[in-house]
């Protein structure tokens, strides 16, 4: 066999091998492309979660629970089933989310339920409307929010089930006996830790290497000459801080940050439970 023949034969062999590889690759293409799209969707949700954590959770809550009376929940059955008809939106929910996040909202569509704070009630987030986010980031955010669809609880029903009349704002009121274990659950369920974060292992009311727990801190504040509130005991101080947060502001914090409507949304028992829980944290 001459060199030319050998090279031509080997060449044909390589071409055949290459073709075989290409055919095999081609047969796998539909599967690969479908998988790739799933991965992309998953990555979009991951990126969206990160963006949500940085930009949205301050108002809408780390788990989309919102804050009653101020900012609407997103992780809510109502949002996935009724919201579009409620506002008369003709596109998809994804379009609705992208549009709302991009251009924000000047006034609330439900001012009685969620008046928001300040104007606009929701700022515009898209770069082209003066916000910080690019379009692809807003698409990722929408992917993350839409991922709540299957598990979103019915928060309206939960609210309607409020176990009793609201507690009001009288801090001298005699509260029933509180249960610290239930209180801990409530603190999580009401989303307190949305804002009260800073300790290394959890919410800000826990003890850290730098300072004691909230119960001890409450005692200390009562003895502080600059204290301007009316509480006489640690329990009363915590009561006051929850229902009338602006009576006394701890140095280093701003007034008006904490919603002042917990007197309307907590029952006596719930408030007592939360206080009982906080008092265990020395």
């Amino acid at each position: 066999m001459s060199r030319v023949q050998l090279e031509i034969s080997l060449g044909i062999l390589f071409v055949a091998l290459t073709s075989a590889l290409l055919i095999w690759y081609g047969l796998n293409e539909p599967k690969r492309m479908a998988e790739y799209e799933l991965h992309q969707r998953a990555k979009a949700i991951e990126v969206g979660a990160e963006l949500y954590d940085i930009n949205c959770k301050g108002c809408h809550g780390p788990q989309g629970e919102g804050v009653v009376g101020l900012w609407p929940p997103l992780n809510d059955r109502h949002f996935f089933t009724n919201r579009l008809t409620e506002v008369g939106w003709s596109g998809t929910l994804e379009d609705y989310i992208i549009s709302t996040v991009s251009s924000g909202r000047l006034v609330s569509t439900r001012p009685d339920l969620y008046p928001g704070q300040g104007r606009p009630v929701m700022p515009a987030w898209a770069e082209r409307y003066g916000g910080p986010l690019r379009d692809d980031q807003i698409r990722n955010l929408a992917a993350f929010i839409l991922n709540w669809k299957d598990t979103a609880p019915d928060r309206t029903a939960q609210m309607a089930e409020m176990a009793g009349p609201p507690t009001g704002t009288d801090i001298n009121k005699q509260l029933p006996e509180g249960d610290p274990v239930r209180g801990q659950g409530l603190a999580a369920a009401k989303g307190c830790a949305v804002c009260h974060i800073s300790a290394p292992t959890g919410p800000a009311w826990l003890a850290t290497p730098d300072q004691p727990g909230i119960a001890t801190r409450a005692e200390e504040i009562l003895t502080d000459p600059n204290y301007t509130g009316n509480a006489k005991t640690a329990a009363q101080y915590l009561h006051e801080s929850i229902v009338l947060p602006n009576v006394y502001i701890v140095p280093g914090f701003q007034a008006g940050v904490m919603p002042a409507n917990y007197g309307d949304t907590l029952t006596d028992q719930e408030l007592a439970d939360i206080i009982a829980y906080l008092l265990t944290l020395k």
């Binding site: 080997l10 060449g11 390589f14 091998l17 590889l21």
Partner: peptide, 22 residues
């Protein structure tokens, strides 16, 4: 001679590239 050699090298090159990926 040279032409067949080049065609051969080309087939090797394409195979190496495609095989590296697939």
């Amino acid at each position: 001679d040279l032409l067949s050699h080049e065609v051969f090298l080309t087939s090797v090159g394409i195979f190496a590239l495609v095989a590296s990926v697939i």
